[in-house]
Design a protein around this nucleic acid. Structure first.
Lengths: 154, 154
DNA sequence: GCTTGTCTTCGAGCGTGCTCGAACCCCTAG
DNA sequence: CTAGGGGTTCGAGCACGCTCGAAGACAAGC
């Protein structure tokens, strides 16, 4: 199914950064036959955030988290997918408020797609200029390192 | 003089980002024969920060700013060079506290160079992983854009 | 001399994004 | 039946980096 490939790719993009998502565990969770939802501590660990943060995201209306009959949060595959998206966007500096706008649009249905596109395009531009800026800072830092390391007294 | 080239290069690295430094003005200021120090509003404008922020940096002991006989801050070339460094490092996410550690080392003399190197190396690594992380986020964003744009209903 | 403008200090306030503590609930093991 | 170790809510607190406002000094121009 091409949608499954897409999901797998998207999840692969969520690998790597320090404290990042455990992709194998995610893949396990997203298998249709998996009955093993996560509790909050498992979800927090896999997503690389604290349980407090997950509750905070729920309180901030970024995500609706299903509960079991004891009232405990059950992190199923769709919930985790949204949280992967949220944590990735947060890690790249998108403010909570923008994220809420976005998920509101998602929840509002398919005819908000143009607005979502706008948001994403804007975020893409933000990311690009952030990257450019950091690369400048990196160059400046490496330059300074070089002056320290070659001439003893720069 | 190779040091002049080095300074010019360093200043060139300070160009570009939104709200960044005006390099021509900086070059003007750093010319040895220039008598034209900046006042706080000129400095703020050239550095792309607010006067409030400059006073805050001084209060935070990141920089000592000379005064004229009226008690007004005079931003001369060395001061501006330090502020260029500070604003660049801030823009790349180095916390104020780290910056203070660094400038304390600088002010403490040449035998703190190993410590400064450590700080810079650490910051370089931070920058590299930040860049890697942002590039992942960019890829994820572009992937999402692609799914929105090709298939109407992803 | 007076107004206007820009500077000064100082302390307080604010926005963001968590982070925590207290009090309570529920399930399971012993 | 009881103890322990999760979970829950709620509101409050915190760290960071500004950001601002009030009250006053000084210089230049009318």
């Amino acid at each position: 199914m091409t949608n499954d490939r897409a999901l797998a790719d998207a999840l692969r993009l969520a690998v790597d950064p320090p404290g990042g998502v455990n992709v194998d565990a995610l893949r396990e969770l997203t298998r249709a036959d998996s009955e093993e939802d996560w509790d909050i501590s498992a979800a927090a660990e896999h997503l690389g955030v604290s349980p407090h943060t997950l509750r905070y995201y729920e309180r901030a209306d970024l995500v609706v988290i299903p509960r079991d009959q004891a009232g405990h949060r059950r992190f199923d595959a769709p919930t985790v997918r949204r949280l992967v998206f949220l944590t990735r966007m947060r890690a790249s500096g998108m403010p909570i408020a923008d994220l809420r706008r976005y998920v509101d649009l998602v929840d509002a249905g398919a005819d908000t797609i143009p607005d979502r596109l706008d948001l994403l395009l804007e975020h893409r531009d933000t990311l690009r200029s952030q990257i450019a800026q950091l690369q400048l800072a990196l160059a400046a830092t490496e330059y300074k390192l070089a002056t320290y390391q070659e001439g003893p007294q720069p």
